[in-house]
Amino acid sequence: MREQARAILNADPRFSRFDPLPRLIYHDDFNRGLRGWVELIGNYEHSLDSMLPQFADMRPPMLSSGTHWDTGTHGAMQGTYSMKLATRARAGDISVSIKRVTWRHRGPIRLEAYFTFKPEASELQLSVNDVRAVGVLFDLQDEEYRWMPHWRYLNALEGEPVRSWQFKREREPFHDIGDRAETVSHFHLAPTGWEDVPESGQILCFNEVATKFNWYYLRMDVDLASRQITHLQCNDRIHDLTGVGPMMILAMPNLDCMLNVAFWVETDVDKRAFLYVDSVLLSGDW
């Protein structure tokens, strides 16, 4: 980015903590509403019952003030509100929120966000292994491929700490939806097929009580031209991309130039898990 443009960003507290590419596609500060982030829903035809059951209940996002029983309102990293995703209190339950736009230039794209995650503070315990995973994905399409970079922080699995990052390139089976051969669906967030990002062990600042928030920086770059993941970063750790790749699918009808981003949270126990996103900045280079 040109020096002058960077200086302008640095002078604005909303942007100085980001490292965007030259074009700001969207900047979502949740003090100004949910700004197009919506619950993910599966495809259906005729009836909601035709949906894959895993997609039936992804839970609506909320504007959260981060309010707790013990200390009151924690607020967000900047201002009062963050976007909150909440699972049901059922092990393995997932909440997913998505924002849908399209791309206008087939080049580099950068996603940056500040986020944190916590279990519901329903027990007076550390609860550090109660959230299974939080993640982010792109859902992209060009003339040849639909491709879906998936990246998650696997915090714990079946009660055991993991604390490392994973990606997923294995495709889940497609299922026909309805009876008109117009729609298919695949549950790409299934627990199967995840692979480790090399040497990606990373201890995040969970703190010591479920009601204390520390915010983390996340950056994920993709290149629409080469269909590659080009950068994975959380806080000070830039992860090794050796062998890391996206889910690849032949281009599908009606998804031209799709540029979707989704966040999710999954609980490991019968307790609600929460993902809080303070702000999101999507930028591109053209």
């Binding site: 909601l48 039936a56 003030s65 309010t67 509100y81």
Partner: peptide
């Protein structure tokens, strides 16, 4: 949409929805 098409029987409550704004 705090509840969508799940079967409700007996005693039930919708999931908590934070909306202090």
């Amino acid at each position: 949409i705090v509840e969508r098409s799940e079967e409700l029987r007996g005693s039930f409550a919708t999931e908590p929805y934070e909306c202090g704004w």
